[in-house]
């Protein structure tokens, strides 16, 4: 069955709501409006206003309430419209959700899932387009996921809800309309792991490491390179915290070269962290210095040609691979 990323996410949420009465969805316009990205369309009528809880514009308040509800025995899924708005809730996420377990000496856990859209590409300008996944990936105490495929959109929510600690899920806005085949056997367990990175395309000459909205661009670049006889591996990080260093090291020590693609800005980026780990783990296996393709150091501009120029693109990835391979 061919489904969209949006539909896969919707099904995952639906399963969660049906299978566990402790689960509820809360956020701005998740109910009557049908969800900013239409992920929860129809849920308000099906599950009612208690479990599909529209909130006022109070990011700090309702994310904090989600933390409290998690402490109190519920399994809240809190939706924040976009990562830019999550900054209004950053205090609760970083100073409470991530720390309570530790500060209480292990007495309490916060089984909270926070979902948010991220990323650029739709000309929404600087206040709606940023990729701040690395900010969250910096914080001990939370797990950070970036489903980039339909299967991960379908399968990551259940294990995230089963995690006793806070999980932040980043859904790149450009992915919602992507489609792929999804197995549709009845009683299928969609659950996937939320520990490991995944090789999305095996290859021999170089590893392209990426996540989220840049995965389709990396695969497009790999296709183009393959047409020229250049066989590259594409690795999808999937889990941004804790990073799966093993899978990265295994791949890079096999291909001996790496290009890291990240929609975040280069300075202080997740790509920088991945590169550091490659250098720590695979220094003597490398045949060339790793290279990064990141967003340019500029707030995302509105004008289309400028936005395109600011972001990683397949052509930039191809060029970076050619540079590293010297072909």
């Amino acid at each position: 069955m061919r489904v969209s990323y949006r539909e896969a996410m919707r099904q995952a949420l639906h399963d969660a709501l049906v299978s566990d009465p402790r689960v509820f969805l809360m956020g701005e316009d998740v109910g009557r409006y049908g969800g900013t990205y239409a992920v929860s369309k129809g849920f308000y009528d099906e599950f009612g206003p208690e479990r599909i809880r529209d909130t006022p514009l109070s990011e700090l308040g309702f994310v904090g309430a989600g933390i409290g509800a998690a402490l109190g025995g519920m399994r809240p899924i809190v939706e924040v419209m976009t990562v830019n708005f999550s900054l209004l809730a950053l205090d609760q996420i970083v100073n409470s959700a991530a720390l309570l377990r530790h500060m209480s000496g292990g007495q309490v856990s916060v089984p909270l899932v926070i979902r948010m859209a991220t990323g650029a590409g739709r000309q929404l300008a600087a206040q709606h387009s940023h990729s701040l996944e690395n900010w969250y990936a910096h914080i001990p105490g939370i797990r950070v996921l970036a489903p980039a495929t339909i299967a991960d959109a379908r399968g990551m929510l259940a294990p995230a809800l089963a995690d006793p600690d806070p999980v932040v899920i980043f859904e790149h806005a450009q992915l919602y309309n992507t489609e792929d085949e999804l197995r549709d056997e009845p009683n299928e367990d969609w659950r996937c792991d939320i520990e490991r990175a995944a090789i999305r395309r095996p290859g021999s000459r170089l590893t392209v490491i990426t996540y989220g909205g840049s995965l389709p661009k990396a695969l497009e670049a790999a296709d183009e390179l393959a047409r020229d006889g250049i066989d590259v591996e594409v690795l999808d990080l999937r889990v941004l915290r804790p990073l799966d260093t093993e899978t990265i090291a295994e791949s890079v020590s096999r291909t001996h070269r790496a290009v890291i693609v990240d929609e975040g800005w280069r300075s202080g980026s997740l790509a920088a962290e991945v590169m550091a780990r490659i250098v720590e783990r695979c220094f003597y296996d490398l045949d060339a210095p790793p290279v990064r393709v990141c967003s340019e150091e500029v707030p995302i501009p509105y004008a289309k040609h400028m936005e395109d120029a600011a972001l990683p693109q397949a052509a930039k990835i191809v060029a970076a691979v050619r540079e590293v391979l010297n072909v």
Partner: peptide
């Protein structure tokens, strides 16, 4: 339109 002659040089768009 996102043009350089815009009041925010095309960097902001309708919202900025």
């Amino acid at each position: 339109f996102g043009k350089a002659a815009g009041c925010s040089r095309g960097r902001g768009g309708s919202m900025h």
